[in-house]
Every structure is written in C-alpha cells, then in structure tokens.
Design a protein around this nucleic acid. Sequence first.
DNA 1: TCAATCCCAAGCGATCTTGTCGGGATTGAG
DNA 2: CTCAATCCCGACAAGATCGCTTGGGATTGA
Lengths: 176, 176
Amino acid sequence: MAPTATESAPAAHRPSFHGTGAVAFSTKGEYGVRLMVQLGRHYGTGPASLAEIAAAEDMPRAYLEQLAFVLRDAGLVVSTRGAHGGYELGRAPSSIPMSEVLRALEGPLAPMICATDEPGHDLACDRTSSCTVNLLWIRVRDAVAGALDGVTLADLVPQRLVSIQPAASEGALTAS
Amino acid sequence: MAPTATESAPAAHRPSFHGTGAVAFSTKGEYGVRLMVQLGRHYGTGPASLAEIAAAEDMPRAYLEQLAFVLRDAGLVVSTRGAHGGYELGRAPSSIPMSEVLRALEGPLAPMICATDEPGHDLACDRTSSCTVNLLWIRVRDAVAGALDGVTLADLVPQRLVSIQPAASEGALTAS
DNA sequence: TCAATCCCAAGCGATCTTGTCGGGATTGAG
DNA sequence: CTCAATCCCGACAAGATCGCTTGGGATTGA
C-alpha cells in the first residue's frame, strides 16, 4: 500500500490529556459514547463495522476495538463475526442509561476512594470519626450518578437529523 | 540516611490512584479539603502552622505547602510569615463554598474538553452539528457544580459534632 | 542571634493514558 | 474451496500526570 501523501504526519499520539481539571472523563469515555451514538443511529439495520464508524467519527480504529470489547463484555452491544459482521446495540437506545455506559468504560463512579459505589463498599476510610469530608464526596458521586441515570442513549441520538436548536437555555442550574 | 524503624516506612509514594474510575478527584482535592477543614476548626484562634496540621491529618507537610500556596493565591486562606506564623481562613467557613475550593485545587470543573466552565469557552468541539453528546457532559458538569455549590466549609467542620442531617436517601440508586 | 515558619523551584519514580502492532479465529461471498 | 472482511486479543511504546521530596531562600517573634 503506497502511503498517500495526503496522509498527515503520523501525529504520534494525541498531544495532551482531555480532562486536565477535576471531574474529568478520559477519551475512553468520549470515544465510547460516540461509538454508542453511532450504533444508535444504525439501530435495526444490522451490524455496523468498526472501520465504518472509525471513519465517520475520525477515531483510531484499533483503539475503538478495545472499547468495543469492553462494551460487549458489559452486555451493551453484541458482535457478529466474519465478513459483513460488526456491532449492534443489545437493547433499544431508550433503555440504555448513560450511567451504565460510562461505568462500563471508565469503572465505578468514585470521586474518591472512600466513596465507591460498588456493592460492599464499607468506607475504606480509617478516620471515619472525623471524616465529615466523606459527606462531600458522596454528594458529588450521587449528583453525577443522578445526571447520568437521567440520560439515555436515545437522548443523544439525533433521530432524524432534527435541526438542532441552539440548545436554548440549557444551564438552568447555577453553572457559576 | 538510614530511616529509623519507628519512622513510618518510606512507602515510596501512594500505591495507586485515588479515583481509578471516572469522575475522580486527586489527592490534591482530598488533602486540600482536609486542610481547609482543619483551618475551619482553628478559625478565630490565630494562624495554624502546616507542621501542626500535617501531623494531625497524617499528610506530607511539604506537599501540603504546595496546596496551601494555591489556596492562598485563590484568596481562600491568608498566611502569616515568620515565627509563630501559619495559615488561617480568609473568610468565615459558612461563606466558603466547596466549589471554590475544589476549583482552586483541581482546576476548572470540566468533565470534557468541550464542556469547560471557563468564561469564554465557545465549545471547542468542531463537530458541533452532530455533537449532541455535548449535552451529556454539560449535564454532568452542572450536576457536580450544583452539588459543590450546595456545601460550604462550615458543613464539613464538626463544630460541636452537630448532627448533620443524614444526606437524604442514601442507597436509592444501588441499582446497578 | 536564632529558630520557626512561610515561600518557591526543580526534579524523580510510579502509574496511567492513548494509542499502535501483529497475529489469530470466524464467517459470507464468489 | 478460496479469499477477504471482520471480530478477537495480548503485548508494548511514548508521553503525560501524579504524588512527593529536596534544597534552598525570606521573614518574623523571642
């Protein structure tokens, strides 16, 4: 294969991180969600190949594979092997809460080690007596979980390319 | 030099990350908040030295210094130099929202690069047309900001062990 | 004077992220 | 049957960040 000159420089890896600040999802989260959205579009029309999606969203195919495996192991997508194979959603988009997707991709929603949302968590903090701070992390964790539970994949799939309104007054909350 | 056995083992650095998953604050956030809580306890009784606080909370003093500088630059604490110096809160604990503390310590509350909460953010995302995904990150960002705005330092300082109201229904969302 | 304390910059090792690479296994189509 | 498309999977490399230490200053009260 002659490498076409149009190929931009190898670019090595992406230069910097995504979430440089607090409360940051990684590209795993971003790419994975974008992948799910694409699958949501194809829902009902048979499996879609990763090569296709990678091209459409301009994401590295080999990396997408890794995320796809995770999503498959979590039961969110099903795969079909062989020629003309690919991935498709395991359920209707409206019954896939984003909390499930993000948890599969990035692990448990734990702002802090003492605030895991895993089953038997039992506060790993040994200074529980003076650890009122814990209250804070739990609040954050619940806020995020609530926000993520309230959005399903269907909410993110532009069903028929509705002319996307400028989001109107989105920030009802006090987004300082 | 030979570290005395009584000295807590070098322990190298902390073994693993704090929040291995999504939505993770780092130790900067944790230590910084604990520092602020200690200062909240001392509020009104003159400056407290870092050595004192580091011992009380079992955190590395030199590392605490770095966090203290950040908090000082953010105007949250004031410092007194020289002997018998130290740090004290710049305001009453009840007028210090934790959102301000965390933002100072960890940077902007940005779950994703396209959802910064900085002044002129202008969505850096170039595929805005199909980027309904953005909605999700903004929701999460607002949820976290809301949760953090609703807690002040006073809520975390066990003034007289005031019974802090039990954070509403806790285990409601253990579904997943 | 002197010790306590804040101030500050540089640097180091471990760990995580962000991909790449190379090869397998499985299937539909010609 | 042959072949190409596709999923499957493990290893690894570059780089960034985190957590923390070191080593010195500057400033003040006793």
